[in-house]
Structures are given as C-alpha cells and as structure tokens.
Design a binder for these strands. Structure first.
Lengths: 135, 135
DNA sequence: GTTGATAATAGGAATGATTACTGCTAATAA
DNA sequence: TTATTAGCAGTAATCATTCCTATTATCAAC
C-alpha cells in the first residue's frame, strides 16, 4: 500500500516541468496543463507542486516578483535570475558537494540538506532593450 | 540638492539592521522601530526597506515562510537558512569574485550584478528539538 | 526666520500569490 | 463488488506586500 495514488494531472505536471527549461511559476503550469485538462484547479497545481517538491522530484528555485519558481531538473546546478524580466537560466556545476556541506555543518552546528547558488543581473534581452531605450 | 531627505525613522531602521545579526523580516523591523516611534506605519517600513536596498545599504537575503528577510551587512558572505524555524545564520566568505561573475556573464550572455550562496537545512536548535520529540 | 517645493509619512484600501476548506469523484486494496 | 481514502474543483480565506491620498516634515533659497 502506498499513500500516494496515480494522478494524470500530477503526471502531466511533472512531465511538463521535465520538458521545459524555463523554470515556471505555478500560474504558468496552471495555464499549460489546463490546455489539456480544462477543469484543472489552481489549488491542485499548488498542492501537486508542493507534493512533488516534498518527494524531491522537482525543486524550488526561488521567488521572482513574488512568485515561486520551480525546476524539473534535479541534478545539481546553479541559476541566473534576470532582474529585468525574471527569466531564469541554468548555469552548470559550481555547487559544493556534500562533503563541503557536512564540514560546514559540523563547524557551524547545523545539518545541511541542500544548497543553491544564484547569480542575479540582466539577461541579454534586457541589456539590449536597455541600450535601445537610451538611443 | 539631493532628492532624498533625512528621515529619523529610516535612520533608525538602518541602524537597527546594522546592529542585529538576525536577518529580520519587515514585520520584525516594524515592531522594533514602533517601540521608538509609536506612529510608525507598516507601509513606511516597506518603502524604506526597498529604498535602502536600492541604495545598496542593505541586502535582501531571500524569502522564508513567505516573508522577505533583510541583512544590514553588505560585505560579501553567505547564509544558512533553517527549514525548521526560519533562522538565518551568516557563513563567511565563499562567494565568487567579480572576475568570475564577469567571465560567466560573457559566456552566457548576461551582466551579473551580484550573487548569493544559500545553504538550507536544520539548525542546532531544531535538530535538538527533533531528537527530543523522538524519545 | 519665513517660504515654497516636494520628500516622507500614516492610515487604510487594494492586490495578488498561496493555502484552507468542503463536498464530491475516482483509484485502489480487500 | 465494496469500503476506504487520496485527489479534485471551486471557492473562501489568509496574509505579505504595494498602492493611494491627505497631511506633515525637511531643507534650500531668500
């Protein structure tokens, strides 16, 4: 017996998050999945996003303009977040391994469960738009 | 002429953020400053926190339980965030320098304005509380 | 010191993302 | 098949944050 049942909507959400590389918000997922399941409820999206996070099948990336963003790629990597348009871009590697986390935990008295490295700035699109506006 | 005038409440907010090491939320700042200025408005706290962030006198640390947290220490350092109680602890060093950010920006087509490294897990207090509950 | 321009503010309304609740439906074990 | 209960839609509630307006405080110029 497993206390989580199969759910077509949840499966579709996980598949969507694994396909895309745009690190969506709950609302983005809601509109996309609703194209396939017109009776989808926003509450279902939030509940399943939280459930998938609990089961480590997706990750929270951080809040951008007040909205949490999610990532279907669970392999360790970092992110760039654009302060202009909110776009999130994957950056490979660069996160410390568990040994480093364990050592830091011993030193400072905590148990690390994970870490994230985030660069912020302006993406190429927003840089172009900025220089256009100045002319 | 400067388009920012002196404000006793804003000065008190900045002094408070520089004194404390607890990385407060807007609400925490509101209650603390209101002890000194009983007519303080929560909107004023939010406006001044945003203004101080714009002027790089304080930093946003990230959202914990839906609340943004702020840091009056602007020297580069990292943070540990407790998933149990929301406590934030400073970790020295460990952020890449501007050269690294510039190189990554050239490679991926963005202009980096800053970066942050965040470790998440359980702090010593929450670890103790957890083991107490199991006995 | 007075005055004029305008930044700063209080107080409260509005916004918007997220969560909680309720009755119903459907997946699954027995 | 049938009982159990996870999953769900729809909606109300929550709550951090922002917006709005009339008023007050700051400060440069006189």
């Amino acid at each position: 017996m497993n206390n989580v049942r199969q759910s077509k909507k949840r499966d579709a959400m996980l598949a969507l998050l694994r396909q895309t590389d745009c690190h969506p918000s709950a609302d983005w997922v809601y509109h996309r999945i609703r194209a396939e399941f017109p009776d989808l409820s926003l509450g279902t999206v939030y509940r399943n996003l939280n459930l998938l996070c609990d089961r480590r099948l997706i990750r929270r990336v951080g809040t951008v303009n007040g909205q949490e963003r999610y990532d279907g790629v669970t392999e360790p990597h970092s992110h760039f977040i654009c302060n202009g348009c909110g776009a999130i871009i994957d950056l490979p590697g660069q996160t410390p391994d568990q040994d480093w986390l364990d050592a830091a935990g011993v030193q400072y008295g905590f148990r690390a469960e994970g870490c994230e490295f985030i660069v912020r700035g302006l993406c190429r699109y927003c840089l172009d738009r900025q220089s256009d506006a100045q002319t």
